[in-house]
């Protein structure tokens, strides 16, 4: 399949760096409220400043997610959304949007399908990156190696609780960028971003040249700008998008996420 100038996650960050621009990465749960809206949402996000898009594959036991994304995943599963359907949506929009797509999936569905066939399948659908929230460094090698061969970048997570030696090891292995979890906690909107994030970004800076994306708990343009000012290369916003899509009709939701996405990107362009 030939796609519209879609670059790898790394290359995407490279060109952002050349433009001295902080990336915006919105997250949405695939299949909520329905797959048709997900396809539209991907286009809306891409047209409103999303440099990369994180697409959540619904899972029955999302341990790292707070109530908003849990509920979205449950609704999608109740509608019978399967991985094939999610990838079908990616393939459908792939030619129309230039944002790189990062799949966010828990480990069991990947393991169950067979790691290599999963990676090949998502690659064929037009996915560039992968985040597996319940696969820490110790267990990640089994995915990292085939992913490198197949051409999917697997991004590892660093948490506020990770000690510095561990941060170094994770930074070395992480592909595309490093996903810095900004809170000791699960995904979801918080009124404030912990000031500790600033420290974490600077200590990561001393250990790696790789881009740093900050996520979990960021829900407003002000917070996004704050995180960018602290030195993040990317701001990841999830629950705030999922909630905007979930609360209203699909049309209203799409309008709301478009405006919200635009406002976030404007905030970090300043």
């Amino acid at each position: 399949m030939k796609t519209k100038d879609v670059t790898s996650v790394s290359d995407c960050f490279k060109s952002l760096k050349e433009r001295r621009e902080c990336a915006l990465i919105p997250f949405i749960t695939a299949g909520d409220p329905d797959l048709e809206t997900t396809a539209k949402a991907l286009r809306v996000l891409a047209n409103n400043g999303a440099d990369l898009i994180e697409l959540g594959v619904p899972y029955s036991d999302p341990l790292a997610d707070g109530p908003t994304i849990q509920a979205a995943a449950t609704r999608a599963l109740q509608r019978g959304v399967r991985l094939e359907d999610v990838l079908q949506v990616v393939t459908e929009v792939r030619e129309e949007i230039s944002s790189s797509i990062i799949l966010f999936s828990y480990y069991n569905p990947i393991y169950h399908r067979g790691i290599e066939s999963f990676l090949k399948q998502i690659k064929a659908a037009g996915v560039q990156g992968l985040v597996i929230p319940d696969l820490p460094l110790e267990e990640a090698e089994i995915v990292l190696k085939p992913a490198t061969e197949i051409g999917i970048e697997v991004t590892l997570l660093v948490a506020p609780t990770s000690p510095i030696e561990r941060i170094k090891a994770i930074a070395t292995k992480s592909q595309g960028f490093i996903y810095l979890v900004s809170v000791t906690g699960v995904t979801g909107m918080r009124s404030q971003v912990a000031t500790r994030v600033e420290e974490l970004i600077s200590s990561l800076r001393t250990t790696t040249d790789k881009p740093i994306g900050v996520g979990f708990g960021i829900s407003s343009p002000e917070q996004a700008k704050q995180v960018k000012d602290w030195g993040a290369d990317a701001v990841i916003v999830g629950s705030a998008f999922v909630k905007r899509l979930a609360d209203v009709t699909p049309e209203e939701g799409l309008k709301a996420i478009g405006e919200f996405c635009h406002s976030l990107k404007q905030a970090i362009l300043q």
Binding site: D134, P136, L137, E138, L156, A159, T161, R166, V186
Partner: peptide, 12 residues
Amino acid sequence: GGKYVPETLMPA
């Protein structure tokens, strides 16, 4: 066995 948990828990 193993440890398939979010990174936040690994130090704990």
